[in-house]
Protein backbone atom coordinates (compact mmCIF):
# COMPACT_ATOMS: atom_id res chain seq x y z
CA UNK A 1 0.00 0.00 0.00
CA UNK A 2 2.73 2.37 1.01
CA UNK A 3 4.69 1.72 -2.15
CA UNK A 4 1.67 2.40 -4.20
CA UNK A 5 1.06 5.82 -2.72
CA UNK A 6 4.69 6.71 -3.23
CA UNK A 7 4.46 5.76 -6.85
CA UNK A 8 1.38 7.88 -7.33
CA UNK A 9 2.50 10.79 -5.18
CA UNK A 10 4.59 12.48 -7.84
CA UNK A 11 2.98 10.96 -10.86
CA UNK A 12 2.61 14.31 -12.59
CA UNK A 13 6.31 14.92 -12.17
CA UNK A 14 7.08 11.57 -13.69
CA UNK A 15 4.74 12.11 -16.60
CA UNK A 16 6.26 15.53 -17.19
CA UNK A 17 9.70 13.94 -17.25
CA UNK A 18 8.87 11.52 -20.05
CA UNK A 19 10.38 13.69 -22.81
CA UNK A 20 13.51 13.97 -20.70
CA UNK A 21 13.57 10.24 -20.12
CA UNK A 22 13.14 9.54 -23.82
CA UNK A 23 15.92 11.98 -24.69
CA UNK A 24 18.33 10.75 -22.04
CA UNK A 25 17.77 7.04 -22.53
CA UNK A 26 16.47 6.91 -26.08
CA UNK A 27 18.96 9.30 -27.63
CA UNK A 28 22.00 9.60 -25.44
CA UNK A 29 22.14 5.91 -24.55
CA UNK A 30 20.31 3.88 -27.19
CA UNK A 31 21.33 5.97 -30.19
CA UNK A 32 24.92 6.02 -29.02
CA UNK A 33 24.78 2.26 -28.49
CA UNK A 34 23.26 1.84 -31.96
CA UNK A 35 26.05 3.89 -33.50
CA UNK A 36 28.67 1.84 -31.71
CA UNK A 37 26.97 -1.40 -32.75
CA UNK A 38 26.96 -0.31 -36.39
CA UNK A 39 30.71 0.20 -36.25
CA UNK A 40 31.10 -3.57 -35.92
CA UNK A 41 29.09 -4.29 -39.09
CA UNK A 42 29.76 -3.99 -42.83
CA UNK A 43 26.93 -1.45 -43.29
CA UNK A 44 27.20 0.75 -46.39
CA UNK A 45 24.26 3.05 -47.16
CA UNK A 46 21.87 1.26 -44.84
CA UNK A 47 22.30 -0.53 -41.53
CA UNK A 48 23.05 -4.20 -41.86
CA UNK A 49 23.70 -6.19 -38.74
CA UNK A 50 26.35 -8.81 -39.58
CA UNK A 51 29.01 -8.55 -36.96
CA UNK A 52 32.51 -8.51 -38.34
CA UNK A 53 34.50 -7.53 -35.25
CA UNK A 54 37.05 -4.75 -35.38
CA UNK A 55 37.56 -4.76 -39.15
CA UNK A 56 36.17 -1.26 -39.56
CA UNK A 57 38.51 0.08 -36.90
CA UNK A 58 41.52 -1.49 -38.60
CA UNK A 59 40.42 0.02 -41.90
CA UNK A 60 39.81 3.33 -40.20
CA UNK A 61 43.28 3.59 -38.73
CA UNK A 62 44.88 2.62 -42.03
CA UNK A 63 42.94 5.30 -43.89
CA UNK A 64 45.12 8.36 -44.54
CA UNK A 65 42.21 10.72 -44.40
CA UNK A 66 41.38 9.56 -40.87
CA UNK A 67 44.90 9.65 -39.49
CA UNK A 68 45.40 13.10 -40.98
CA UNK A 69 42.11 14.14 -39.44
CA UNK A 70 43.22 12.95 -36.03
CA UNK A 71 46.63 14.57 -36.41
CA UNK A 72 44.98 17.84 -37.45
CA UNK A 73 42.65 17.65 -34.50
CA UNK A 74 45.58 17.28 -32.12
CA UNK A 75 47.48 20.23 -33.59
CA UNK A 76 44.33 22.29 -33.76
CA UNK A 77 43.27 21.32 -30.26
CA UNK A 78 46.57 22.06 -28.56
CA UNK A 79 47.07 25.39 -30.30
CA UNK A 80 43.47 26.49 -30.07
CA UNK A 81 43.11 25.66 -26.39
CA UNK A 82 46.54 27.07 -25.58
CA UNK A 83 45.98 30.38 -27.35
CA UNK A 84 42.45 30.74 -26.04
CA UNK A 85 43.58 30.20 -22.47
CA UNK A 86 46.59 32.48 -22.64
CA UNK A 87 44.95 35.29 -24.58
CA UNK A 88 41.67 34.91 -22.70
CA UNK A 89 43.48 35.11 -19.39
CA UNK A 90 45.55 38.12 -20.40
CA UNK A 91 42.49 39.96 -21.67
CA UNK A 92 40.61 39.15 -18.48
CA UNK A 93 43.51 40.49 -16.42
CA UNK A 94 43.72 43.67 -18.52
CA UNK A 95 40.00 44.26 -18.14
CA UNK A 96 40.18 43.54 -14.43
CA UNK A 97 42.85 46.25 -13.93
CA UNK A 98 40.21 48.87 -13.31
CA UNK A 99 40.20 50.31 -16.82
CA UNK A 100 38.08 52.92 -18.49
CA UNK A 101 35.41 51.75 -20.92
CA UNK A 102 35.50 48.25 -19.54
CA UNK A 103 32.09 47.47 -21.02
CA UNK A 104 33.18 48.51 -24.50
CA UNK A 105 36.27 46.32 -24.49
CA UNK A 106 34.38 43.36 -23.08
CA UNK A 107 31.73 43.71 -25.75
CA UNK A 108 34.37 43.85 -28.46
CA UNK A 109 36.23 40.78 -27.22
CA UNK A 110 33.10 38.70 -26.88
CA UNK A 111 31.06 39.54 -29.97
CA UNK A 112 32.70 36.94 -32.25
CA UNK A 113 31.35 34.30 -29.92
CA UNK A 114 27.84 35.29 -30.98
CA UNK A 115 28.70 34.46 -34.59
CA UNK A 116 28.35 31.03 -36.12
CA UNK A 117 31.36 29.00 -37.18
CA UNK A 118 30.19 29.26 -40.77
CA UNK A 119 30.27 33.04 -40.61
CA UNK A 120 33.64 32.92 -38.80
CA UNK A 121 35.08 30.58 -41.40
CA UNK A 122 33.89 32.67 -44.32
CA UNK A 123 35.16 35.96 -42.88
CA UNK A 124 38.61 34.55 -42.27
CA UNK A 125 38.67 32.81 -45.61
CA UNK A 126 38.23 36.25 -47.13
CA UNK A 127 40.83 37.87 -44.84
CA UNK A 128 43.31 35.15 -45.81
CA UNK A 129 42.55 35.30 -49.51
CA UNK A 130 45.94 35.02 -51.25
CA UNK A 131 45.16 37.51 -54.00
CA UNK A 132 43.05 40.12 -52.27
CA UNK A 133 43.44 39.56 -48.54
CA UNK A 134 45.85 40.75 -45.88
CA UNK A 135 48.84 39.34 -47.75
CA UNK A 136 48.09 41.49 -50.74
CA UNK A 137 47.59 44.62 -48.65
CA UNK A 138 50.93 44.23 -46.90
CA UNK A 139 52.70 43.47 -50.16
CA UNK A 140 51.22 46.60 -51.71
CA UNK A 141 52.69 48.56 -48.83
CA UNK A 142 56.11 47.56 -50.10
CA UNK A 143 56.90 44.37 -48.20
CA UNK A 144 57.01 42.22 -51.33
CA UNK A 145 58.03 38.96 -49.69
CA UNK A 146 55.30 39.03 -47.03
CA UNK A 147 53.49 35.72 -46.78
CA UNK A 148 50.15 35.33 -45.14
CA UNK A 149 47.96 32.97 -47.10
CA UNK A 150 47.95 29.86 -44.96
CA UNK A 151 44.82 28.41 -46.52
CA UNK A 152 46.56 27.76 -49.82
CA UNK A 153 49.27 25.64 -48.27
CA UNK A 154 48.78 22.04 -47.20
CA UNK A 155 51.31 22.60 -44.48
CA UNK A 156 49.91 25.77 -42.90
CA UNK A 157 46.20 25.65 -43.65
CA UNK A 158 45.35 24.18 -40.27
CA UNK A 159 47.01 27.16 -38.58
CA UNK A 160 44.69 29.43 -40.55
CA UNK A 161 41.78 27.54 -39.06
CA UNK A 162 43.33 27.93 -35.60
CA UNK A 163 43.48 31.72 -36.01
CA UNK A 164 39.81 31.90 -36.94
CA UNK A 165 38.81 29.62 -34.07
CA UNK A 166 40.85 31.60 -31.55
CA UNK A 167 39.25 34.79 -32.81
CA UNK A 168 35.82 33.29 -32.29
CA UNK A 169 36.37 31.46 -29.03
CA UNK A 170 38.69 33.61 -26.92
CA UNK A 171 35.89 35.89 -25.73
CA UNK A 172 34.22 33.03 -23.90
CA UNK A 173 37.42 32.17 -22.05
CA UNK A 174 37.95 35.82 -21.20
CA UNK A 175 34.43 35.92 -19.81
CA UNK A 176 34.94 32.83 -17.67
CA UNK A 177 38.35 34.00 -16.45
CA UNK A 178 37.03 37.46 -15.67
CA UNK A 179 34.25 35.95 -13.60
CA UNK A 180 36.91 33.89 -11.83
CA UNK A 181 39.06 36.95 -11.15
CA UNK A 182 36.09 38.94 -9.93
CA UNK A 183 35.22 36.12 -7.59
CA UNK A 184 38.51 36.41 -5.75
CA UNK A 185 38.32 37.91 -2.30
CA UNK A 186 39.43 41.53 -2.61
CA UNK A 187 41.31 41.22 0.67
CA UNK A 188 43.71 38.77 -0.99
CA UNK A 189 44.86 41.63 -3.19
CA UNK A 190 45.23 43.90 -0.19
CA UNK A 191 47.18 41.27 1.71
CA UNK A 192 49.54 40.83 -1.24
CA UNK A 193 50.09 44.58 -1.44
CA UNK A 194 50.83 44.83 2.26
CA UNK A 195 53.23 41.91 1.86
CA UNK A 196 54.88 43.84 -0.97
CA UNK A 197 54.38 41.12 -3.58
CA UNK A 198 54.82 42.50 -7.11
CA UNK A 199 51.81 42.33 -9.37
CA UNK A 200 53.09 39.64 -11.73
CA UNK A 201 54.07 37.41 -8.84
CA UNK A 202 50.68 37.91 -7.26
CA UNK A 203 49.10 36.69 -10.48
CA UNK A 204 51.42 33.76 -11.04
CA UNK A 205 51.73 32.44 -7.50
CA UNK A 206 48.46 33.44 -5.88
CA UNK A 207 45.73 34.28 -8.37
CA UNK A 208 46.23 31.61 -11.02
CA UNK A 209 46.27 28.81 -8.45
CA UNK A 210 43.09 30.29 -7.01
CA UNK A 211 41.20 30.23 -10.30
CA UNK A 212 42.33 26.72 -11.18
CA UNK A 213 38.74 25.37 -11.19
CA UNK A 214 37.80 27.99 -13.77
CA UNK A 215 40.78 26.99 -15.89
CA UNK A 216 39.81 23.33 -15.70
CA UNK A 217 36.27 24.18 -16.77
CA UNK A 218 37.61 26.29 -19.63
CA UNK A 219 39.85 23.48 -20.84
CA UNK A 220 37.04 20.92 -20.69
CA UNK A 221 34.69 23.21 -22.61
CA UNK A 222 37.24 23.99 -25.27
CA UNK A 223 38.26 20.36 -25.57
CA UNK A 224 34.65 19.44 -26.27
CA UNK A 225 34.33 22.08 -28.93
CA UNK A 226 37.60 20.87 -30.47
CA UNK A 227 36.28 17.35 -30.88
CA UNK A 228 33.15 18.79 -32.46
CA UNK A 229 34.83 21.19 -34.86
CA UNK A 230 33.10 20.82 -38.20
CA UNK A 231 31.33 23.86 -39.62
CA UNK A 232 34.38 26.05 -39.25
CA UNK A 233 36.47 23.76 -41.42
CA UNK A 234 33.67 23.19 -43.93
CA UNK A 235 33.20 26.93 -44.37
CA UNK A 236 36.80 28.08 -44.22
CA UNK A 237 38.69 25.39 -46.14
CA UNK A 238 36.24 22.64 -47.05
CA UNK A 239 38.85 20.29 -45.63
CA UNK A 240 41.44 21.39 -48.18
CA UNK A 241 43.71 22.06 -49.80
CA UNK A 242 43.39 18.38 -50.66
CA UNK A 243 42.73 16.74 -47.35
CA UNK A 244 45.06 19.00 -45.39
CA UNK A 245 42.47 20.31 -42.96
CA UNK A 246 40.18 17.34 -42.64
CA UNK A 247 38.88 16.71 -39.13
CA UNK A 248 37.20 13.66 -37.56
CA UNK A 249 33.74 15.24 -37.34
CA UNK A 250 33.83 15.92 -41.05
CA UNK A 251 35.12 12.44 -41.74
CA UNK A 252 32.06 10.95 -40.04
CA UNK A 253 29.51 13.14 -41.79
CA UNK A 254 31.11 12.73 -45.21
CA UNK A 255 31.28 8.97 -44.86
CA UNK A 256 27.70 8.33 -43.93
CA UNK A 257 26.33 10.85 -46.42
CA UNK A 258 28.05 11.22 -49.77
CA UNK A 259 30.53 8.36 -49.39
CA UNK A 260 27.86 5.91 -48.22
CA UNK A 261 29.96 4.04 -45.72
CA UNK A 262 27.98 4.05 -42.52
CA UNK A 263 30.04 1.46 -40.70
CA UNK A 264 33.37 3.23 -40.95
CA UNK A 265 31.66 6.51 -40.13
CA UNK A 266 30.31 4.96 -36.96
CA UNK A 267 33.70 3.51 -36.10
CA UNK A 268 35.09 7.04 -36.43
CA UNK A 269 32.23 8.45 -34.36
CA UNK A 270 32.99 5.91 -31.65
CA UNK A 271 36.61 7.02 -31.66
CA UNK A 272 35.40 10.60 -31.19
CA UNK A 273 33.18 9.56 -28.34
CA UNK A 274 35.96 7.86 -26.45
CA UNK A 275 38.03 10.88 -25.41
CA UNK A 276 34.88 12.80 -24.58
CA UNK A 277 33.73 10.10 -22.21
CA UNK A 278 37.15 9.79 -20.61
CA UNK A 279 37.48 13.54 -20.24
CA UNK A 280 33.98 14.49 -19.31
CA UNK A 281 32.73 11.48 -17.38
CA UNK A 282 34.68 12.22 -14.19
CA UNK A 283 34.03 15.94 -14.53
CA UNK A 284 30.27 15.53 -14.89
CA UNK A 285 30.19 13.06 -12.03
CA UNK A 286 32.10 15.46 -9.86
CA UNK A 287 30.19 18.61 -10.80
CA UNK A 288 26.64 17.35 -11.03
CA UNK A 289 25.99 13.90 -9.62
CA UNK A 290 28.20 13.97 -6.54
CA UNK A 291 27.48 17.58 -5.70
CA UNK A 292 23.76 17.01 -6.09
CA UNK A 293 23.96 14.24 -3.53
CA UNK A 294 25.95 16.22 -1.03
Amino acid sequence: MKRKTRMWSNLSAKIASIPMLITAVGVFILCVAYSIALSFTPSRYFPKFDFIGFDQYIRLWTTDRWTISVYNLLIFGVLFIGFCLVIGFILAVLIDRNIRMEGVFRTIFLYPYALSFVVTGLIWQWMMDPALGIQNVVRNLGWESFNFAPLTSTEYAIYGVVIAAVWQGTGLIMCLMLAGLRGIDREIWKAARVDGIPLWRTYVFIIIPMIRPVIVTAVVLKAISVVRVYDLVVAQTGGGPGIATEVPAKFVIDHFTERGNVAIAMAAATMMLLPVLLLVGPWVYNEYVRRARA
Binding site: D185, K190, A192, I197
Partner: peptide, 27 residues
Protein backbone atom coordinates in the same frame (compact mmCIF):
# COMPACT_ATOMS: atom_id res chain seq x y z
CA UNK B 1 52.65 48.02 8.93
CA UNK B 2 51.20 44.54 9.09
CA UNK B 3 47.54 43.94 8.43
CA UNK B 4 45.02 41.29 9.43
CA UNK B 5 41.83 40.97 7.42
CA UNK B 6 38.30 39.89 8.16
CA UNK B 7 38.34 37.11 5.57
CA UNK B 8 41.88 36.18 6.73
CA UNK B 9 42.99 36.57 3.08
CA UNK B 10 45.40 33.68 3.36
CA UNK B 11 46.85 32.45 0.09
CA UNK B 12 44.82 29.26 -0.31
CA UNK B 13 47.26 27.21 -2.37
CA UNK B 14 50.20 27.74 -0.02
CA UNK B 15 51.02 26.03 3.23
CA UNK B 16 50.90 28.01 6.44
CA UNK B 17 54.67 28.24 6.41
CA UNK B 18 54.66 29.55 2.86
CA UNK B 19 51.92 32.02 3.72
CA UNK B 20 54.13 33.43 6.45
CA UNK B 21 57.34 33.47 4.45
CA UNK B 22 56.19 34.43 0.96
CA UNK B 23 56.29 38.18 1.45
CA UNK B 24 59.73 38.01 3.06
CA UNK B 25 61.05 35.80 0.28
CA UNK B 26 59.83 38.21 -2.35
CA UNK B 27 61.57 41.06 -0.58
Amino acid sequence: IGMVFQSYALYPQMTVEKNLSFGLQVS
